Every structure is written in C-alpha cells, then in structure tokens.
Computed example of a mutant assay.
Amino acid sequence: MNSYKKDKNEEAIKELKAIFKKYKIYPKKRYSQSFLINPILIEWHLKFADLNSDDFVLEIGAGIGILTLSLVQKVKKVIAIEIDKTLIKVLKNRLASYKNVELIQSDILEIDKSLFKDKKVISNPPYNISSPLLFKLFKTKYKMAILTLQKEFAERLIAKPNSKAYGRISVNSYLYADIELLKIVPNTFFYPTPKVDSALVKILPKSNNTQILNVKFYNELVITLFSQKNKVLEKVLKGFLKKRINESKIQKIISNISCSRNRIRELTPEQIVELSNRLYQKLSRT
C-alpha cells in the first residue's frame, strides 16, 4: 500500500473509531463485523446497481450506515436490515434526517422472503451468512443484487464442473442466477481488516431456470452428492438409494444412468437436475 492510501486508511479508521467511542460500540466477532473504510467500494456499488429515484433497495447488514447514507440519496426507499440492536441506535441517529429509510432490527435469514420482492439488494453482508443468504436469495423475487462476498466464496459461485471450487453452491448459482464477478475488493477496504480479500458480484435472477420436479428431493440429492464429490456417482447413489428402495432394484436404476461412472465433480448442473428428475420419477412409481 502506498503512503497516500495508507494515510487515507488511517484517517478513515480514526473517524470510525471516533464513532465507536461516541456510541460506545465495538466490532463484534459473533456477527462477523467489519466496517467499510474505503469510499471506492460505495462508488462501485452505486455504479453497478444503476440506481434511480424509483428504486427500492434492501441493504443487509447496514452497520453504522456508511453505505446506507449514499443509498438514501439515490433511491425512492431503502430498507436497512441490521441484527445488532446497538447499531440500530447508531443508524437511527445518523439517518434521522432521511424519511425514505426503514430500519429493521432482525436476522435477514429469519425475515420473510416477500421483503425481497422487486428490490435491488445492495450490501456488504457478513461473511458468516454468505451461503444461507444466497440460498435464500435464489428463492425470492428480488430484482437484482450487488454484493460484496469473500473472494473464495464468490469464485465458488461461478466455478465450472471438474474444478476445485465446484460444489453445491456452484450448481444452484448456475441454475437460479446469472452471476458476474465485477471487482476484487482488497481486505484493506474494511476495519477490522479481514484475513482475506473480497469480491464484488452482480447477481440477476435467471428467468428460464431448469425445471426441477421436486425441490426437496433435489436438495437432498445435491447435498449427498457434494458431500462426496470426488467419488464415482454409482457408488454414492447406491448409498443414497439404499435408504429409499429395496436393494435389488438399485442396480437396475443405476445401469440406466449414462453418467454413473463419472465422478460427482464432473457432472454439469443440467446433468444433476436430469438425474434428480429421473430418480424422483422412478422412486415415485415404486
């Protein structure tokens, strides 16, 4: 980091600590709290979200309102979610002059998915909820999302079959959304400084997502498959099916699966959906 950037960061950290002192707050590890100190990330959020005065925005993990303060000046309404009740007090104070913001003290994972409907989700969410947050997002009718995520996690979202990062979240991301990695975000953009870098991603709902006959069955299958992703499909399926049908019928079902000799990590999302649908239909008839 050059001396100018270092000075700017130190200045931002000093201002942040002054806010901590004023409100008698501190970063809480249990909430995975790191606060934004570099305004460049705010500029990126606003640019890639293409905001206008008619937009409704949902912000997850509003913190002390660093991003929120910019959002409320650009859009019709911001709904800011913050789990930490001590930070809600800070937000109420810092956003008191704005009438187009609604503060909700809650866990986003517990909030009804209807809140996402027709919203642009713009956030720097805590790392520790990234996976369940994305699975929830995919089930909602959100408009689009611009999120700062841990870099490694963001790479898993767009990972291809047979790559090291390919997994359950990669499959679901491909099926339910179009995802673009926009920017790498250095860990120095936050305080306390995280151990790893982040990435800014754009997420759009996929309108023509592949038809899954039974989502519950599909989810159970995918969890089983990717808990053993380096194994051959045939072996994993035997264990999966043994809990559901008579063992004498298992081999007949597997023999009709063309990719049964492939390793799990080699299967494309389309193959996995096709496998789920075929198995569900066969098991429904037994």
Rank of each mutant, 00 (worst) to 15 (best):
R168K: 11
R168F: 07
R168H: 05
S170G: 05
S170C: 06
V171M: 04
N172G: 03
S173C: 00
S173N: 01
S173M: 02
Y174H: 06
Y174V: 00
Y176M: 04
Y176P: 00
Y176C: 00
Y176T: 00
A177G: 03
A177P: 01
A177R: 01
A177E: 05
D178P: 04
E180T: 06
L181A: 03
L182G: 00
L182T: 00
L182K: 03
I184G: 03
V185L: 06
V185P: 01
N187W: 09
T188W: 09
T188M: 07
P192N: 05
T193D: 10
T193W: 11
T193I: 15
P194V: 03
K195L: 08
K195D: 12
K195Y: 07
K195A: 09
D197T: 01
S198L: 01
S198F: 02
A199Y: 01
V201Y: 05
K202Q: 06
K202S: 07
I203F: 04
L204D: 11
L204N: 14
P205R: 15
P205M: 12
P205A: 11
K206A: 12
K206L: 15
K206Y: 13
S207Y: 15
N208Q: 12
N209Q: 15
N209G: 08
T210R: 15
Q211T: 10
I212V: 14
I212R: 12
V215S: 11
V215R: 15
V215N: 12
K216F: 14
K216R: 14
K216C: 08
F217P: 01
Y218A: 00
V222W: 04
V222F: 06
V222I: 13
I223E: 15
I223A: 13
T224D: 09
T224I: 08
L225G: 00
L225P: 01
F226Q: 06
F226A: 05
F226W: 05
F226R: 06
S227L: 11
S227K: 13
Q228R: 14
K229N: 05
N230W: 13
K231Q: 10
V232S: 01
V232T: 04
L233G: 02
L233N: 02
L233F: 02
E234M: 08
E234Y: 09
E234G: 04
E234K: 14
K235C: 08
V236S: 05
V236I: 10
V236K: 03
L237F: 09
L237R: 07
K238N: 10
K238I: 08
K238R: 14
F240Y: 05
L241I: 03
L241F: 02
L241T: 02
K242M: 05
K243L: 07
R244D: 02
I245C: 09
I245L: 11
N246S: 14
N246G: 09
E247Y: 11
E247M: 11
S248H: 12
I250K: 13
I250D: 10
Q251F: 09
K252C: 13
I253Y: 07
I253M: 09
I253Q: 07
I254E: 09
S255K: 15
N256T: 11
I257A: 02
I257D: 05
I257P: 10
C259M: 14
S260I: 04
